[in-house]
Computed example of a mutant assay.
Amino acid sequence: MKEIKIDNCPYCGATEFTKGYQTAQGSMYPQTFGLKLGCPIEHTICTECGSIVHSRVTKIERFK
């Protein structure tokens, strides 16, 4: 998976970020479930203001 480069928080301008993961009830599922499972969502979070500045699913192959 290609890494997304974020230089500054669009809300406060800070340059420090951390990753967080949303799982369980917050998992993302394909439009048609079938036998495909959901997957966690990875968030990039500004450590200064706490804003989520980017989100993506961790296993894109489950959506193809």
Rank of each mutant, 00 (worst) to 15 (best):
Met1Ile: 09
Lys2Gly: 12
Glu3Val: 13
Ile4Arg: 15
Ile4His: 08
Lys5Glu: 11
Ile6Thr: 08
Asp7Pro: 01
Asn8Ser: 14
Asn8His: 12
Cys9Pro: 03
Cys9Arg: 06
Cys9Asp: 03
Pro10His: 08
Pro10Val: 11
Tyr11Gln: 09
Tyr11Trp: 12
Cys12Met: 01
Gly13His: 07
Gly13Thr: 07
Ala14Asp: 13
Thr15Met: 02
Thr15Gln: 10
Glu16Gln: 13
Phe17Arg: 08
Lys19Met: 10
Lys19Glu: 08
Lys19His: 09
Lys19Pro: 01
Gly20Asn: 15
Thr23Asn: 12
Thr23Ala: 10
Ala24Phe: 12
Ala24Gly: 12
Gly26Pro: 03
Met28Trp: 05
Pro30Val: 00
Pro30Asp: 00
Gln31Trp: 11
Gln31Thr: 14
Gln31Glu: 14
Gln31His: 13
Thr32Asp: 09
Thr32Ser: 10
Thr32His: 10
Thr32Val: 11
Phe33Gly: 05
Phe33Trp: 08
Gly34Pro: 01
Leu35Asn: 10
Lys36Trp: 13
Lys36Gly: 14
Leu37Glu: 07
Cys39Asp: 04
Cys39Val: 07
Pro40Cys: 11
Ile41Asp: 02
His43Cys: 12
His43Leu: 14
Thr44Val: 15
Thr44Asp: 03
Ile45Tyr: 06
Cys46Leu: 04
Thr47Asp: 01
Thr47Asn: 04
Glu48Asp: 11
Cys49Gln: 02
Cys49Ile: 04
Gly50Met: 13
Ser51Cys: 09
Ser51Val: 11
Ile52Lys: 05
Val53Met: 02
Val53Thr: 04
Ser55Ile: 06
Arg56Val: 06
Val57Tyr: 03
Val57Glu: 00
Val57Gly: 03
Val57Cys: 04
Thr58Asp: 02
Lys59Ile: 07
Lys59Thr: 08
Ile60Gln: 15
Ile60Lys: 15
Arg62Trp: 10
Phe63Tyr: 03
Phe63Trp: 01
Lys64Phe: 02
Lys64Thr: 00
Lys64Ser: 01
Lys64His: 02
